[in-house]
Design a protein around this nucleic acid. Structure first.
Length: 422
RNA sequence: GGAGAGGUGGCCGAGCUGGUCGAAGGCAGCCGCCUGCUAAGCGGUUGUGGGAGUAAAAUCUCACCCAGGGUUCGAAUCCCUGCCUCUCCGCCA
């Protein structure tokens, strides 16, 4: 959420940002109109309130001295009615203003490349050389089925399309990756947490999934709860409605959680294999930082995610998302894309973003500077470190052998207990 | 699921037969005094958000005693709803 005052005072900047994101700026016109009404009405109500408080005080004093108050009472009554009446309008304006504010996206950072869609994302760097195969590399789903470590058919019997059943060493690989990543992240100073997977509406609003992206969520209606699409939601909301002290910042968390996504609007996309599932595992990195540090923290967080790929010896590249591809809440995002030999493509395996104070304002996460009055919003960041399912894909495809077996990356062997799946 | 108790400022804790309560008192914190150090002691001070105001302050003002409604001229105090916490019983991984 943007700062009301900022939006009110810098409308042209906001419009410009919306245009860069290919957003329709009509929401914005409504906002300005309602915000003006809201502000005027607020002032009027406040003034009337002051008068009423004054009269009420007098009534109290006079009563105590046994004086007649019927005259004052009459005036107070009508003033009170006026206020009540105005407050219903004020309420409407406030709701409208908040509602339009909640669906206005974040303003991209000045360093974000301007572009229309993902085609105009900018490659920042590459790591590792794609392996040269002396045979035709197979898709991960073929490898998985041949090795009997992934069973798509039974998964669809149990739950439906876009689910998977991991078996034997496949299941163990999933678990090994979670443990490996968590251990590595913890060794870098991230605090491990294991949060709720079902969250309430306030949490979903806090990180920006609601109200705009309800169609992407699995929703439970009684009681009203939402399955998280990413641990970002649970973990960022740990500090919702809190005032942190300056000295406890920055805060680093890492969490493993399952994630749930409707994948509405992605019909026909990546229907085969593990790429796009309704349920998948992910290890997440989340940071709370002071505003002046947040972009350094973004670079560091991205490096931490990259380090996982490097230790697994998987070739990847880093891409800076352009304004047209940038997520709703993000100010800046780097995607990590891992090389998939069967597709001959780099595919997203991690997304690292700085949200600046966009989420913090929605979720009301503030901090207090030492010796200073008042509070400021923190900056929130997060990134996958990493998506487990997609890491499984990358390992199966990049480490496959001619005989159909898959070699286990060095760093995972202590977690797997074997060095090859065959 | 059944029966009770409760949610007040950084913490503890009064107030809850409606008015002078943003809220006693204590602790903690900050500033100053005093004491050759420390402790004790003394005086002062300390929340959040919005608006007006200022070069910036000062200052003025509205709101906030879990949340949302209601009664009333006026609510931390009365009524309703929701959420959460605790105790007992039942049930359960």
């Amino acid at each position: 959420m943007l700062d009301v005052r900022f939006v009110r005072e810098n409308p042209e900047q906001v419009v410009k940002a919306l245009e860069k994101r290919n957003y329709d700026s009509s929401v914005f016109d409504d906002f300005l109109k309602n915000e003006k009404s809201r502000k005027d009405m607020r002032e009027e109500v406040d003034n009337h309130r002051m008068k009423l408080n004054d009269i009420s005080g007098k009534i109290g004093m006079m009563r105590k001295q046994g004086e007649d108050v019927s005259q004052l009472l009459q005036g107070a009554k009508s003033l009170s009615d006026t206020i009540k009446n105005q407050e219903t309008y004020l309420n409407e304006y406030e709701v409208k203003v908040r509602n339009s504010l909640l669906i206005i996206p974040n303003i991209p950072h000045e360093s974000v490349p301007v572009g229309k869609d993902e085609k105009e994302n900018v490659e920042v760097r590459r790591w590792g050389e794609p392996r040269q195969f002396d045979f035709e590399p197979l898709n991960h789903w073929d490898i998985g089925e041949m090795l009997e470590i992934i069973d798509f058919e039974r998964a669809s019997k149990i739950a439906g399309a876009r689910f998977s059943l991991m078996k034997g060493l496949g299941a163990k690989l999933e678990r090994a990756l979670m443990n490996f990543m968590l251990d590595l992240n913890v060794s870098k100073g991230y605090k491990e947490v294991f949060p709720p997977i079902l969250v309430n509406r306030e949490s979903m609003t806090g990180t920006g999934q609601l109200p705009k992206f309800a169609f992407e969520l699995f929703i439970i209606s009684d009681p009203e709860l939402y399955l998280i699409p990413t641990a970002e939601v649970s973990v960022t909301n740990i500090h919702r409605n809190e005032i942190l002290s300056e000295k406890e910042l920055p805060i680093y968390y890492t969490a493993y959680t399952p994630c749930f996504r409707r994948e509405a609007g992605s019909y026909g996309k990546d229907v085969r294999g593990l790429i796009r599932q309704h349920q998948f595992n992910k290890v997440e990195l989340v940071k709370f930082a002071k505003p002046e540090d947040s972009y350094d923290e973004l670079e560091a967080l991205t490096k931490d995610a990259e380090d996982i790929l490097q230790k697994l010896e998987l070739p990847y590249r880093v891409v800076a998302l352009c304004t047209g591809d940038l997520g709703f809440a993000a100010s800046k995002t780097y995607d990590l894309e891992v090389w998939l030999p069967a597709q001959q493509k780099y595919r997203e395996i991690s997304s690292c973003s700085n949200f600046e104070d966009f989420q913090a304002r929605r979720a009301n996460i503030r901090f207090k500077r030492e010796g200073k009055k008042g509070t400021e919003f923190v900056h929130t960041l997060n990134g996958s470190g990493l998506a487990i399912g997609r890491t499984v894909i990358a390992i199966l495809e990049n480490y496959q052998q001619k005989d159909g077996s898959v070699v286990i990356p060095e760093v995972l062997r202590p977690y797997m207990g074997v060095d090859i799946i065959k």
